[in-house]
Simulated scan of single mutants.
Amino acid sequence: MTTLKSKLHDDLTAAIKARDELRSSTLRLTLSAVAYEETSGKVARELSDDEVLTVIAREAKKRREAAEAFDMGGRAESAQRELAEGEVLAEYLPKQLSDEELSAIVAGAVAEATAGGAEGPKALGAVMKIVKPKVAGRAEGGRVAAAVKAALAG
Rank of each mutant, 00 (worst) to 15 (best):
L124M: 07
P94M: 08
T13H: 12
D99A: 15
V110F: 03
S40T: 03
L22D: 07
K42Q: 02
S6T: 11
I16L: 14
A109C: 13
K122N: 10
D20Y: 06
A79H: 09
L93V: 06
G108N: 13
R28E: 14
T39C: 07
E51C: 06
G125V: 05
V55S: 03
E100Q: 15
G137D: 08
L12F: 10
V131Q: 09
R23H: 06
S98L: 06
V131D: 10
L83Y: 11
H9W: 01
G137I: 07
G117Y: 04
E46C: 04
A60Q: 15
L83H: 05
E65F: 09
L102I: 12
A67V: 05
E87I: 02
Y36M: 12
K42S: 05
L47N: 01
L53K: 15
L93W: 04
L8E: 11
I16W: 00
I16N: 02
K95A: 13
A113K: 09
G125S: 09
V131F: 02
R138N: 11
T26N: 00
V135E: 05
E59M: 15
T39Q: 13
L12E: 09
L89H: 01
S6V: 02
G137A: 14
L29F: 04
E38A: 13
E51M: 09
G120L: 09
A69G: 13
Q80P: 00
V110C: 07
A14R: 10
Q80L: 12
V135G: 01
E119F: 15
V34C: 12
E21H: 10
T13Y: 10
A44I: 05
A126C: 04
G73C: 02
A57H: 03
V127C: 04
K42V: 11
A104N: 08
R64G: 03
Q80C: 11
Y92T: 08
A15Q: 08
I56S: 02
K62V: 11
G116I: 14
T39M: 08
L83K: 13
A66C: 05
G120T: 05
P94N: 04
H9P: 00
A76V: 03
V135H: 07
A14E: 15
R19W: 00
D10T: 07
V106Q: 04
Y36Q: 11
V131I: 05
P94H: 07
E21K: 15
S103W: 06
G73D: 13
S40G: 00
Y36K: 12
A90G: 09
R28M: 11
E77N: 08
V131P: 00
R138G: 01
L102C: 13
A84C: 03
K122H: 03
A123S: 10
G125P: 00
A69E: 10
G74A: 08
S48A: 09
E38V: 12
G108Q: 14
V110N: 01
E68P: 00
E82S: 10
E46A: 09
A44V: 12
E59Y: 01
A109T: 06
A123E: 04
S48L: 07
A84L: 13
A118D: 03
E38K: 07
E46Q: 13
A69Q: 06
T39I: 14
P133K: 01
P121W: 02
L102S: 12
E112I: 01
G117N: 13
G120D: 01
E65N: 11
S78W: 02
R63F: 03
E119Q: 15
H9L: 09
E51I: 08
K122R: 14
G73S: 13
K62R: 11
K7D: 05
D50S: 04
E38D: 11
K17R: 07
A15E: 07
P121T: 07
L97Y: 00
